[in-house]
Amino acid sequence: MNFLIFKKLTRFSFLLLILSAFSALTCQVALADGVVVDKVYHPYVLPNEQEFEWRMLSHQNDAGNSLGQRIAYGKSITDNVMIEFYIVGERDKDGDFGLSAYEVETRWMMTDQGEYWADWGLSLEVEKVHELDIWEVTTGLLFEKEFGRDSLALNAFLIYESGSDIKNEFETEFRLQYRYRWLPQVQPAIEIYIGQDYTGIGPTFMGIQRFDGQKQLKWELGFITGLNGDDKDHILRASIEYEF
């Protein structure tokens, strides 16, 4: 019994250590100019996998509501590398929804799931803003660790923004997701997003519904609240991913 309590305390202390390390890390760094809240990545890739993805993000704060959506197609090109192409759309200040950016993303599963103490992956994204000379190159370290039926995923991104329409600079972003794998279709989680001028936390629900063969539908729905002192700062994020 005492051993179990010790194990739980150790696990809790360990999580606190990770959280404090990443919080300390982000307290003096700059955030990407875009919205930090997006999606917490997992460091896994399956061979022969293709997917269509839709993501939506609605941000409500004192300035009003902004809406972003993206659609993507992804395909694993080797046993452990996946490439994904995005088209990003946003509602502008006049209320018109239109194309805002294009993006190419690759994810590399560096270790087999469960092979080591934790699982690692890397991501590389290149984004170009539509009709503006703004480029964003992002490299990310993806981490995941299982604790029984719980999973902790951490993403650390280093972003370089450049172009004649933006100040060239390095920025960082951190994302955390602590998930309880309750049922395949319903898995509650807590997510934290950290960057310059923004720290957000909130509950997220996700799940997976399997069909024939490799066909499966993944969904995520999160409600992230900003902790920056604004009276109102809420983000509703949703995503649907069809893998086949």
Binding site: L25, Q28, A30, T172
Partner: peptide, 10 residues
């Protein structure tokens, strides 16, 4: 990014 942050990250 400060030197402290970089060292901590490393």
């Amino acid at each position: 990014m400060s030197l402290f942050s970089v060292k901590l990250m490393q």
